[in-house]
Amino acid sequence: MKLITHNILQNNMKDGKKGYPLVLQATKIDKVIAEFNQEFLLRMLDRLEYHVLIHALEMIGMKDFLPIILPENCSEDEAFMKNLHHALLEIDIIEGELICPESGRKFPIKDGIPNMLLTDEEEMAVDSEPKSK
């Protein structure tokens, strides 16, 4: 699971409380190489919760290579864009947990895949509609 995915996952609860950002605990991290794609990064900058990315980097002990505040005109700063690319797309969380900041509910990350499935009881609490298989 890359940090771009951490940026868009949440635990939105029935009582209206937003479990976001999720606390990230990593026990195994891989580095991968992804192709640099300027167009994609620019597009993402608009939608990214930058402070959440910084927080995620902090939680895995890698905060130092991006500035805490998003710099102005950052899209013209090549070094910044390269680092942003690395932070979003090249750090792969293989094992760990995502933890809801409101409820403490833990969502495991195993073999690089976060598991956001709820138990039947939790699903009933989120959605009053009966599930069909």
């Binding site: 699971m1 890359k2 771009i4 995915t5 868009i8 996952l9 949440q10 635990n11 939105n12 609860m13 991968v32 190489i33 992804a34 192709e35 794609n37 797309l89 090249e90 792969d92 690089g112 895949i113 976060p114 598991n115 956001m116 499935l117 709820l118 699903e123 989120v126 959605d127 599930k131």
Partner: peptide
């Protein structure tokens, strides 16, 4: 490398995405 997979229930997507 540019793809991430998430295990989740589509019918409940607003809860986690």
């Amino acid at each position: 490398n540019d793809v991430d997979f998430i295990c989740g229930d589509i019918t409940n997507i607003k809860q986690f995405f």
